[in-house]
């Protein structure tokens, strides 16, 4: 489903990703771990098509189509979704109007408002979001946990094929993390072909969402790949001794 080949990415002339390779099949859960500043979030931004990140070289294939030159909205409509680490607060734009517009864009057709309302009501209940939050400005005045839940609500509503969870666990309390993970798992159960790339520092989220592969990133590339046990090793020993033998082919 997703194939990243020899990707080189820079921002402000600084090279962040260096010959990065990754392959993700349908229904797989991949985890990218690594210390701060190694390019994990850059990877997520490049995947969704953030124009602030310049791809110098390499290709990104999504269902065998090279999406390197597609805009962020085009990629989203094709089913690529990111749950942001820091969701944007937008004054003046009502959450419910935004969701309606986003769903119409994703489906490329008008929506049945009754079905939309029912679906939003169910998702809000599942995520234990207060109803009035839907009528407030996007993420404005939301707590950290509420913002992350709002991201997951959008994921479940827009039904993407590829989900990138960019540090979704940061700033979440135990109860909120559980709710976010349960909702993600519920979505994956309903959509078993959906693939997930989880970017995180900590293995705590992996207690809920079991990964097929765990990759460790250092200096803009993957230096080691393993399974869930690798994340536990990281928790115990840290990142320092990882990646002494760099693995170029990541899977």
């Amino acid at each position: 489903m997703l194939r990243i080949e020899n990707l080189n990415v820079s921002i402000d002339s600084k090279e962040i990703l260096k010959n990065f390779n990754l392959s993700v099949d349908e229904g797989e859960v991949h985890v990218i771990m690594g210390p701060n500043g190694v390019g994990k979030s850059t990877l997520s931004k490049v995947l969704i098509g953030d124009k602030n990140y310049k791809v110098n070289n390499g290709n990104i294939y999504y269902y065998d189509e090279n999406i390197k030159d597609l805009t962020i909205d085009e990629r989203s409509r094709k089913g690529i979704f990111i749950a942001y680490q820091h969701p944007q607060e937008i004054e003046g734009v009502n959450n419910i109007d935004f969701l309606k517009t986003a769903l119409m864009a994703r489906l490329d057709k008008p929506i049945n408002l009754y079905e939309f309302a029912k679906s939003i009501e169910k998702l809000s209940n599942d995520l234990k979001l207060k109803e009035n939050m839907l009528y407030r400005n996007i993420n404005a005045g939301f707590s950290g946990g509420e913002k992350k839940k709002n991201e997951i609500l959008q994921m479940r509503l827009l039904k993407p094929n590829l989900v990138i969870l960019d540090e979704i666990d940061s700033g979440l309390d135990v109860d909120s993390l559980k709710i976010v993970c349960e909702n993600t798992l519920e979505y994956l159960k309903e959509n078993p072909k959906t693939s997930v790339v989880i970017i995180t520092h900590y293995p705590r989220i992996l207690e809920y969402i079991k990964p097929d592969y765990v990759h460790i990133m250092k200096n803009g590339k993957i230096v080691e790949t393993g399974d869930y046990s690798l994340s536990l090793k990281i928790e115990k020993e840290g990142f320092e001794n990882i990646g002494t033998n760099i693995i170029e082919d990541n899977k």
Partner: peptide, 17 residues
Amino acid sequence: LYLMSRGIDEHNSINLL
């Protein structure tokens, strides 16, 4: 960027804002 990351094209995103 946030609005466009949800599939809303640039024109409609600007309209919303």
